[in-house]
Computed example of a mutant assay.
Amino acid sequence: MGVGIRRGGVGDRERIVGVLDRAFMDDPVSGWVFPGVEYRRVRHSGLMGAFTDATLADGYVDLLEDDSAVALWMDVPDEPHADDGEDVPALVREAVDPDNARIEEIARLLDGVHPQGRAHTYLWMIGVAPERQGEGLGTALMAPVLDRCDRAGRPAYLEASSARSRGLYERLGFTVMDHPLQLPDGPTMWPMWREPQAG
Rank of each mutant, 00 (worst) to 15 (best):
D87T: 10
D87K: 09
V88S: 05
V88N: 05
P89E: 03
A90L: 09
L91E: 15
L91M: 12
R93S: 00
R93W: 03
E94V: 03
A95N: 09
V96K: 00
V96L: 02
D97A: 13
P98E: 08
P98V: 08
P98I: 09
D99L: 10
A101D: 13
I103N: 05
E104Y: 08
E105Q: 15
I106E: 03
I106F: 12
R108Q: 09
R108D: 03
L109M: 15
L109N: 04
L110Q: 06
G112F: 02
V113M: 02
V113D: 00
P115S: 04
G117V: 08
G117W: 00
R118G: 02
R118Y: 04
Y122W: 10
W124Y: 11
W124L: 12
M125F: 12
V128H: 03
A129N: 01
P130F: 06
P130L: 13
E131H: 10
E131V: 11
E135V: 10
G138I: 13
T139Q: 12
T139Y: 03
A140E: 14
M142R: 07
A143M: 15
P144G: 08
V145M: 14
V145F: 00
V145R: 15
D147F: 02
D147W: 06
D147Q: 15
D147S: 13
R148M: 13
R148C: 07
R148Q: 15
D150H: 06
A152M: 10
A152N: 14
A152F: 03
G153V: 09
R154C: 05
P155F: 06
P155M: 08
P155L: 10
P155Y: 10
A156M: 08
A156W: 02
A156I: 05
A156N: 05
A156S: 15
A156T: 04
A156V: 08
A156D: 02
Y157C: 02
L158A: 00
L158N: 02
L158F: 05
E159K: 04
E159Y: 05
A160I: 10
A160P: 01
S161K: 04
S162A: 15
S162V: 13
R164E: 14
R164Q: 14
R166D: 00
G167H: 09
L168P: 10
L168H: 04
Y169E: 04
E170P: 01
E170I: 04
L172E: 07
T175D: 11
